[in-house]
Design a protein around this nucleic acid. Structure first.
Lengths: 111, 111
DNA sequence: ATCTAATATCGTAAATATACGATTTAGCGA
DNA sequence: TCGCTAAATCGTATATTTACGATATTAGAT
């Protein structure tokens, strides 16, 4: 199958990638847990979610690849934290698009 | 495969669903086109995107199912418009989660 | 040196998304 | 009525995501 994603604007590609990372409730839940728990929760996330350890690890990788979290290996453990800068950047990009959309409000003759 | 999405919070499920609709550059592009073009563009979207008609139609359906756009059938044509209310709702929900995340900023001992 | 606990990775199965061409549907105009 | 145009839907191929169990990896503790 041909992948056409590269043919769109970079801003659109960037937002799409982060939106994809936010497109599963488990990953949104993980972000909230990481914000709530002091000292950067690691494996305890598994205890808080109805998912297997390997699945949680997979979701964490997904979030890390999207840049939304950082992970620091510490012996056999790994410490995950939110990447506030990346979250802020996403918020800004999304706002950029949303305000553009709202300001261009079409005076439609139909719906 | 077991689908575990239903086991998460409704807020998380709702945001995830809209985020998924925003997770492809073609769909973000469509939203911008709908905002820009007066009179609610319909088939001309196809001319503006590097995708086949059937693929664009599929993306439009995806956006409509997520509630982000409305479509009004008018003879053989269909007129699509943004659903500003839904977009506003999503913005609010996302802000809710993001401000929660930011206010809970963890004082971590690692990253 | 070995055991153990915490994670990551591998292999795999099923579900969903992405893309296309071909076909169907619907109403308009000749 | 017949074709035309616009759009939706179908069928299909491929890619990606989601989920799990099993296995590998890593470093501290015994």
């Amino acid at each position: 199958m041909l992948n056409k994603k590269a043919e769109f604007e970079v801003l659109e590609q960037d937002i799409a990638q982060v939106a994809k990372a936010l497109s599963h409730p488990a990953r949104l839940s993980i972000l909230r847990i990481l914000a709530k728990e002091k000292g950067c929760m690691c494996g305890d996330i598994v205890d808080l979610l109805p998912l297997a350890q390997s699945t949680v690890s997979q979701h964490l990788k997904y979030l890390k690849d999207a840049g939304l979290i950082k992970g620091e290996v510490d012996g056999p453990k790994t410490c995950y934290c939110l990447n506030y800068e990346a979250i802020q950047n996403f918020k800004n990009s999304l706002n950029e698009i949303f305000t553009e959309i709202e300001s261009l409000s079409c005076e439609s003759d139909c719906c």
